[in-house]
Design a protein around this nucleic acid. Structure first.
Lengths: 212, 212
DNA sequence: GAGCATACCTACTCGTGCGTAAGGTTACGC
DNA sequence: GCGTAACCTTACGCACGAGTAGGTATGCTC
């Protein structure tokens, strides 16, 4: 009396992914504290003890979400920005990959950016990831600077990278709240600000993505 | 048997400020959910029912914190960036005022930026304030653009403003985590990124604050 | 088709923390 | 010097949600 045999008794790996999907959704909506394990279990279509059996406590579950989404994002970016390209080309590809990821994983982004920040236990986890991102950007700038023969202190570089990462995160947030917005266009806008600066923009100078 | 008659029975207005101070500290440390009313009362040197009598429920208390800190910040910025100045001068003064505020009110900043973002009930409150900030920046850019005879769409403008605000917030966060850092220097660095862009910086061009 | 492991459930315990009821104490008006 | 109102307390009720105990069903192996 049914085509689909009422989804039951799935293998562990599958259920774990379903749980993580559910957890990311619920955490992104209510935040870590306000989210309840009961709701996560319900959204996953499973009962609570299963969640504990597979993914452990609430904190461990959240860290698992953080890791999955974070890894996905870092891979998306790293895969796009090859080290042998010029600085502007690398920045552009990195930005495009980043905004593409956020556009496709809005819930994951919300967990990473809006939730992990506040609660103490995970601030470290997130800060580490963010640091890697900042270091990549700083390294990129440093590389380009050396090629240009310009000398800048290390903190100086780090701060600039921080600002760029922050601006990108902010725009990513804007993107997450505007489902109709185009990730590619958002990346272009970010590139304009980052590469040219407000001063150039005010003179009517704009940057355009290269034809492929 | 004492110079100070063991602080008791203070007028309402004073106690309310003490409570708000305590609440901002506790909220900034633990976040909204993890913070307990008992601890806030203890830090304020008062018992819990007093907090309820004066400032209402936990949510109302948090909103009160949000309002006080937010208003303080907006006033600091608005007071510094007079509309009759040139765009770069306005931006510079605004940035300096902003980073000055964060440097002096790190706890308040943590509440505004790190805590209010996640929990649903206050996302709106904060977003409204942030919107006003973005509008101010966008208006500034628009003004300068018209003077220059350049035409840009409204969303374009909003997005650029968003990126600038985001970059500033990110650096403010960095500042909050580096107590030894100088707010003025941080503002200068932000100005370099915002006004010149990475492209100019790579060519060795830098911006310096005007002598006063 | 007996046995065993794995998937899965219902129904509970227990701590924590919000919000309050009811009562004590100090200052101030008259 | 006495009422009264504002300030302040201790001690509790109550709900919600994390984590668990113990039991049931299903597929897989021989």
């Amino acid at each position: 009396m049914s085509g689909t045999p009422t989804f039951k008794r799935l293998p562990r790996a599958v259920r774990e992914q379903q749980m993580l999907d559910a957890a990311v959704r619920v955490f992104s909506r209510h935040g870590f504290h306000a989210a309840s394990m009961d709701e996560i279990a319900e959204v996953a279509g499973i009962s609570k003890p299963m969640v504990y059996a597979y993914l452990g406590t609430k904190e461990e579950l959240f860290v698992a979400c953080l890791h999955r989404e974070g890894t996905r994002m870092m891979e998306a970016i790293a895969g796009a920005a090859a080290p042998e390209l010029d600085a502007d080309e690398r920045l552009w590809r990195g930005l495009r990959a980043f905004f593409g990821f956020v556009g496709a994983h809005r819930d994951g982004w919300a967990v990473l950016y809006r939730q992990a920040r506040g609660s103490q236990p995970f601030a470290g986890e997130l800060a580490a990831m963010r640091s890697r991102l900042v270091e990549v950007v700083a390294g990129m700038l440093d590389h380009a600077l050396r090629a240009e023969g310009v000398e800048v202190s290390e903190t100086e570089l780090e701060v600039v990278a921080y600002a760029l990462v922050g601006a990108s995160e902010s725009l990513a947030d804007w993107l997450a709240d505007h489902p109709e917005a185009d990730p590619g266009k958002t990346a272009t806008r970010m590139m304009n600000v980052a590469w040219l600066g407000a001063g150039q923009l005010l003179r009517g100078v704009t940057w355009h993505p290269p034809q492929e």
